[in-house]
Write a protein that binds this DNA or RNA. Structure first.
Lengths: 148, 148
DNA sequence: GTCGATTAACTTGTGCACGATCTAATCGTG
DNA sequence: CACGATTAGATCGTGCACAAGTTAATCGAC
């Protein structure tokens, strides 16, 4: 039964991503790339560390993803002059312009999911609780396993 | 806001998988491999098509995954004599024995998620509805795009 | 100022996830 | 029986996701 809930989560996540896919294909974006663009649209130029924190994705995922966004011409990657360890990701004019083209994506997704606003609110709270609890659990396990 | 719910789904799914990871590592399984084993434990020997249908994963994902399970010694892959197109996946004795070692995994996961039974039930229903609605949406889009 | 520790990012390797293309076996209809 | 269509599965290429190890810059204690 517990497997069912985890599988339901996994299946629903993939199924929602499948709805995004054709919509984002028009913008030449994948779903994780769209999430990164959303962070940049909302926060403006950000160091990779901040993007990593916002999406909980590590550098091994983000470094090649950001290089692809740079190749597409949507972002620039530049070392910070006052701290050369840090790389700031900045939207190009094209990347900014994309925001307008992506405007209707959330509307389409909401329609496809077909939930009531109440169900959506309950779901959001439950998912946040799961993410919080499981992250805490994983962290506690990491602390106690001797990191061997 | 709608992005938030989709992101919450995506983040929760990855976070739950992260809880499975160390538990399944002891069994030399990944989460998708564990799902395949669960199907086999419940249904017994099955053609790949049935596993694909149960987990909604395509052959491009399952073929290499099943080869890895075969290399581990947990399953055998054999063409069906009466229909050579079909490949039946059968548990080995080791694969059967693994079921006992995996017995406590769902209990640990349930603890880590930390939801009440009521919240779990509501979540399950909502996730199923999302999967159903989005799958229907994707199918309708596929029909109307001229498959060009 | 120097040196060990920390930090931000990159690299490499493994394993999904999925689209597209291919092959071989089976089925259906004339 | 023959042959086009369907079906089950494999293969290849791209892009995440994440662990482990590496590098270069910065910080801190002395």
């Amino acid at each position: 039964m517990e497997d069912l809930i985890c599988f339901a989560l996994y299946a629903a996540s993939r199924s929602v991503t499948a709805v995004y896919r054709p919509l984002l294909e028009r913008l030449h974006l994948t779903y994780p790339q769209y999430l990164v663009m959303t962070v940049l649209w909302q926060r403006g130029a950000s160091p990779i560390k901040e993007i990593s924190g916002a999406l909980q994705l590590d550098y091994g995922t983000l470094t090649p993803l950001l290089k692809r966004l740079e190749t597409l011409g949507y972002v620039r990657r530049e070392r910070r002059p006052d701290d050369e360890r840090s790389v700031i990701v900045t939207l190009t004019a094209e990347g900014e312009a994309l925001r307008e083209q992506a405007r209707d994506v959330p509307i389409e997704i909401t329609q496809a999911m077909g939930l009531t606003p109440e169900a959506t609110a309950v779901l959001r709270d439950t998912l946040r609780q799961i993410t919080e609890n499981t992250a805490a659990y994983t962290a506690s396990q990491t602390r106690s396993n001797g990191s061997a």
